[in-house]
């Protein structure tokens, strides 16, 4: 997962950035389901229970449970008895990394992990951060440019066309036509959680985002048609 951190403030040092990257490495060691000795793998092997796990793990599990309830079951980290909290860990870790920077007194920076972003303060031109939404049909293009500050932006989706994704509430009906769901929220953690859940909802997802106060969304379907929440245009430049 590519991680990018940019700190505009003059006091920023290489050491500071190392601290942030070390934090992400720690997160990966703990939460990666691909690593046999990660804590999450131990839980899935039943070597330890979630209750016996570390504070960070319990925090993530609590956040996942909160999300499951807030999304009426559309978000669930438990599949076939295996926990996969990756849908919530990334946003949570980015927010934590941003908190570390804030606590150290930095005011203008962004933290980007795999396309999910916490943007704080201004960029090097003293403007709000300009965030492009990647074209799901061409990774080299952006289809929208946002101007944001002190908020989180997350996108859930797939680049595989024609992939069949099933709505957990109506599994007889495949959702084939949503390819990308971008959510702007008060922080990247919440934006990510709700982007993931909204994506699983299919076309109804954009209405779920519309119903959330303080969140805006941009949904792209397989016909290259985008649907946006009513407040979304106030963040767009192009």
């Amino acid at each position: 997962m590519p991680v990018t951190v940019e700190v505009v403030d003059a006091e920023a040092t290489e050491e500071l950035l190392d601290t942030i990257f070390s934090y992400f490495e720690y997160i990966d060691e703990k939460f990666s389901t691909y690593k046999d000795n990660s804590e999450i793998s131990q839980i899935n092997r039943r070597a330890i229970t979630p209750e016996q796990s570390s504070e960070d793990m319990r925090t993530v599990f609590a956040l996942a449970e909160q999300t499951r309830q807030e999304t009426n079951g559309y978000f669930n980290i438990l599949h076939d008895g295996i926990y996969d909290p990756s849908g919530v860990v990334k946003g949570w870790a980015i927010r934590r990394a941003a908190e570390i920077l804030r606590q150290k007194g930095f005011r203008n920076f962004y933290v980007d992990a795999g396309g999910d972003i916490e943007a704080v303060g201004k960029n090097h031109l003293d403007q709000k951060w300009r965030v492009g939404i990647r074209n799901p049909f061409n990774p080299n293009e952006t289809v929208k440019v946002l101007s944001v500050t002190n908020c989180g932006v997350a996108t859930s989706g797939t680049y595989i066309r024609g992939q069949h994704i099933y709505n957990p509430k109506n599994d007889a009906q495949p959702i084939t036509d949503i390819v990308s769901m971008t959510v702007i929220g008060p922080n990247v953690c919440d934006a990510d959680r709700f982007a993931t859940a909204a994506f699983a909802m299919g076309r109804e997802g954009i209405f779920f985002i519309e119903s959330l106060e303080g969140y805006e969304g941009y949904m792209i379907d397989q016909h290259r048609q985008a649907t946006l929440t009513r407040g979304f245009p106030k963040y767009t430049i192009l």
Partner: peptide, 11 residues
Amino acid sequence: VDIITGATLTS
């Protein structure tokens, strides 16, 4: 743009 948001392997 400064940053790009997009779908990832995780989602």
